[in-house]
Design a protein around this nucleic acid. Structure first.
Lengths: 165, 165
DNA sequence: AGCCATTGGTTGACGCATCATCCAGTTGCG
DNA sequence: CGCAACTGGATGATGCGTCAACCAATGGCT
């Protein structure tokens, strides 16, 4: 675990990551919305739907896909619906559920946005890295995601225990 | 520059980064606010001030430090002021300017929060990586930040040109 | 000195993210 | 069957981030 202060090497890595994270995210989002009128969040939802059979997905499935809090998803889908990107339908199997489907406008919007997004990601990230760096990034995120997942399942286990009292 | 579709290697890297970025940021922020009542944003401001001589900094300097949009900074400092973490004072050298200083409460809050933050960063990032991975992360962010900076100065050059017409 | 472009900072409006709460439908268990 | 616990999802309040417009002070240039 290490004592509190960071080593120079750690400090450099953290500081670099922190700065990159903030600026890169805002650059990508800014560019996408300027060019296509779709936010980063919109794009995430729409491309999840685009990749689903029939361009429709259950709310829950969508939530797993994008890993958002349920209320965020609900609010956002509401707004997207009023913008005509998506429609909400009743769910047959579970009548409290909801199914969301891409409208034609939504489909057109994502498709138009995809090229832009890919180009931006290349320009500001992928094209700047060597193959080794790409792999390093993959490994790093793998490690971090594994840790976060562990934490998550631990949470669930604790909840399980509490339930069992 | 490459054609549009991503190679499998690129796709893995981007997808991993994207997921890590979102979850890590929200985890760190959630934990900090739960433990200390300070958001990520608060912490950034407060530690910049803490590291400044006299715990005071000019608005502009603060803006360079945290790299925020000026209106974000202004809004946030306003809120922090009402929470008693910070005070706004007039600026002597430039009377349209502003100087912000840490209050005692603000100072106490950051100091209390720092350990928490460092521990969380270790837990969810630094301790998971090998020294080589730390260095790789530093290099990667360096490359990305350099690219973003280039873009930024290009913007400024364009503005310069437009001015010169 | 006098003017105009620029800059430091604020404000208001608006969309987004989170939290807590709520509701209806579903499931499991006696 | 009937009740309790749980789940999928919606909602309202609140704080945050961005954009555009604004204002006053400044600095440079003639």
């Amino acid at each position: 675990m290490g004592t509190l202060p960071l080593s120079p090497r750690e400090a450099r890595a953290w500081d670099g990551y922190r700065r990159m994270q903030g600026l890169l995210a805002s650059q990508l989002n800014r560019q996408l919305t300027a060019d296509t009128g779709l936010s980063d969040a919109d794009f995430a939802i729409l491309s999840a739907l685009l990749g689903a059979p029939g361009h429709r997905l259950r709310g829950l499935a969508l939530r797993c896909e994008v890993q958002w809090e349920k209320s965020r998803l609900s609010h956002h889908l509401g707004r997207m619906q009023t913008r005509g990107l998506v429609v909400r339908e009743e769910c047959v199997e579970d009548s409290r559920g909801a199914v969301f489907q891409l409208t034609d406008a939504g489909k057109a919007a994502v498709e138009a946005a995809t090229d832009d997004r890919v180009a931006a990601v290349r320009t500001y990230l992928l094209d700047l890295l060597t193959p080794e760096q790409l792999d390093a990034l993959t490994e790093i995120s793998g490690a971090v995601l594994a840790r976060l997942a562990k934490d998550d399942s631990h949470q669930r286990a604790v909840a399980e225990l509490a339930r069992g009292t």
